[in-house]
Design a protein around this nucleic acid. Structure first.
Lengths: 124, 124
DNA sequence: CTCTTTGCAAAGAGTTTGCAGGGTG
DNA sequence: CACCCTGCAAACTCTTTGCAAAGAG
């Protein structure tokens, strides 16, 4: 049977921080942000909870930048822009046209990502 | 000044294998495929040359599946389908509509990827 | 009190790198 | 023969995991 889920302060804090963060943080970044409030937080716990959120559909990995996975707590459909110079990941208010989703694809599609690459305004 | 580039049999073999492969192989997969012909090939060499190709724009990393980077020697614009069950990466003959590329994006865009996720026909 | 969650540290996995020797032009 | 390329293995980085202790219901 399904494993029972309990409410822990740290898990709630990780979830909240992820939802609050607009910059698609890595596990390490989330960890660093929560450390002041939870000095005994462990990086492993952040990873374990992110894996959990992903399973439950509460979070999504939007990209791997410089070898680090970047997460998003917003799960509504939208695109992303990734700066190849500084690694910044930004939201782009844009969804993939429905007609593209109705195409003949080699399987059962459950989702799709649209990602732009380039150099961000900040770096230019 | 720029480092001089020379022609080596192994680099050419890696390039050719990447172009011939339609399944977006990982470094390890390429290595395994070339090993019969080059029994003394080293995985490090595959990685080094892939990094090189990427720099020169001759190859692209289209996704990270199960922790492994997957490469594509085809650099013309097209989309991909990734099976979340078996990890297969397939080409999808579909380009992102030009009008999406003319949108107001937060920087200078140099490329974009469109990736579908789901379960492939083979797994269904 | 039972079962989940966590800290800690070690283990894993993929990728990168230093160095000495072999290959290319 | 100068300099690039490669094999080998160690080093690195990010992520996962085992275990015993702490926390939740």
């Amino acid at each position: 049977m399904e494993a029972q889920r309990r409410v822990s302060r740290k898990r709630e804090a990780i979830r909240a921080e992820l939802l609050r963060s607009m910059d698609h943080p890595s596990a390490e970044t989330l960890y660093a942000r929560l450390l002041p409030e939870f000095p005994d937080l462990s990086l492993g716990t952040v990873y374990r909870n992110l894996a959990l959120f992903r399973q439950e559909g509460e979070a999504v990995c939007v990209a791997t930048v410089a070898g680090q996975e970047r997460f998003d707590g917003r799960t509504d459909p939208h695109a992303h822009f990734i700066c190849q110079r500084c690694g910044r990941v930004e939201d782009v208010a844009l969804t993939v046209p429905d007609k593209l989703l109705r195409l003949e694809l080699p399987g059962r599609v459950s989702g799709c990502t649209l990602t732009f690459y380039g150099v961000c305004d900040h770096c230019l």
